[in-house]
């Protein structure tokens, strides 16, 4: 939910550069190094959750036949 709201806010800012960020104090400004790191951390958490656990076996097994 929080991400959806953030996305909406960021879309509004894209539409109108004069809309100030409605973020509470202490939140890193979007685009700042701190915000990017925190976004990426949370993204990597999600990737870690969704990534196949048996990577070695899965990747080995993914064999394709010839194509164009």
């Amino acid at each position: 939910m929080a991400q959806d709201q953030r996305r909406q806010a960021s879309q509004q800012r894209d539409d109108d550069p004069h809309i100030p960020d409605p973020l509470p104090e202490g939140t890193p400004a979007p685009g700042s190094a701190a915000a990017q790191t925190s976004d990426l951390d949370s993204l990597l958490d999600e990737i870690d959750d969704v990534l196949e656990v048996n990577a070695e076996e899965f990747v080995q097994g993914f064999v394709q036949k010839g194509g164009q």
Partner: peptide
């Protein structure tokens, strides 16, 4: 590492 190849595939 296979984890990176897995990420590429997935």
């Amino acid at each position: 590492d296979a984890k990176l190849a897995m990420l590429d595939l997935q």
